[in-house]
């Protein structure tokens, strides 16, 4: 299971993480977020040890999404060394996400 991060844990769990971190910004009522959820879980397993995969509920954590200008969900952002490396919005395919990760990691 991809761990949940919050506004409070974001800095430690994502920005200061030694590994690259893929953050899935989602909400429980968002259909496309539900559509992509199993893909995110599979990525977490397939890339275990290479990247961390975490999820942030935008309903419960308004500060971080607003800081990164997120105006649509699901949005997935790949962070490395505290910086945004890559960003994608919408229920994109697993192949697209793997491409995005392997281009950067």
């Amino acid at each position: 299971m991809a761990n949940q991060v919050t506004d409070n844990t974001f800095e430690a769990d994502v920005l200061k993480c030694d590994l690259p971190v893929l953050v899935d910004f989602w909400a429980p009522w968002c259909g496309p977020c539900r559509a992509i959820a199993p893909v995110v879980e599979e990525l977490a397993q397939e890339y275990a040890g290479q990247i961390h995969v975490v999820k942030m509920n935008v309903d419960e954590n308004p500060n971080t999404p607003s800081k990164y200008g997120i105006r649509a969900i699901p949005t997935l952002i790949l962070f490395q060394g505290g910086e945004v490396m890559e960003q994608v919005t919408g229920a994109v395919s697993k192949a697209n996400l793997k491409q995005m990760i392997s281009d950067k990691v």
Partner: peptide, 14 residues
């Protein structure tokens, strides 16, 4: 797209 342009009111309306 994702920065103001949307195709899903339920997802992004909020």
């Amino acid at each position: 797209s994702g920065r103001g342009v949307s195709y899903c009111a339920v997802c992004d309306g909020n």
